[in-house]
Amino acid sequence: MIAFPIIRVVTKLLIPYILLFGFYVQFHGDFGPGGGFQAGVILAAALILYGLVFGLQAVQRVVPAWAVEKMMAMGVLIYAGTGITTILLGGKFLDYEVLDHHLLPGILPHGQHLGIFVVELGVGITVTAVMTMIFYTFAGRKHVL
Results as ranks from 00 to 15, higher is better:
Phe37Gln: 13
Leu13Gln: 05
Ala39Asp: 07
Asp100Asn: 15
Ile15Arg: 02
His28Arg: 08
Tyr17Trp: 12
Pro33Met: 09
Gly36Ser: 02
Ile42Gln: 04
Ile84Trp: 00
Lys92Pro: 01
Gln57Val: 13
Ile78Gln: 12
Gly81Val: 10
Leu52Asp: 12
Val68Ala: 05
Gly29Glu: 05
Gly36Glu: 01
Gln26Asp: 02
Phe93Thr: 08
Gly51Glu: 03
Val25His: 09
Leu94Ala: 09
His28Asn: 15
Gly34Asp: 07
Gly22Trp: 01
Leu77Phe: 13
Tyr79Gly: 03
Ile87Asn: 00
Lys70Phe: 09
Ile78Leu: 14
Ile87Glu: 00
Ala58Ile: 08
Gln57Ile: 08
Ala58Asn: 07
Gly40Tyr: 00
Lys92Gly: 15
Trp66Ala: 14
Tyr96Gln: 05
Gln38Asp: 13
Leu94Tyr: 03
Ile87Ser: 00
Arg61His: 12
Thr85Cys: 09
Phe31Asn: 09
Phe37Asp: 07
Phe54Thr: 08
Gly29Tyr: 07
Ala44Cys: 02
Glu69Pro: 02
Phe37Ser: 13
Tyr24Glu: 10
Ala46Gln: 02
Met74Ala: 15
Lys12Ser: 12
Gly90Asp: 07
Glu69Asp: 11
Met71Cys: 09
Val63Phe: 12
Tyr17Leu: 15
Asp95Gln: 06
Arg8His: 07
Glu97Trp: 14
Phe4Cys: 03
Val63Gly: 02
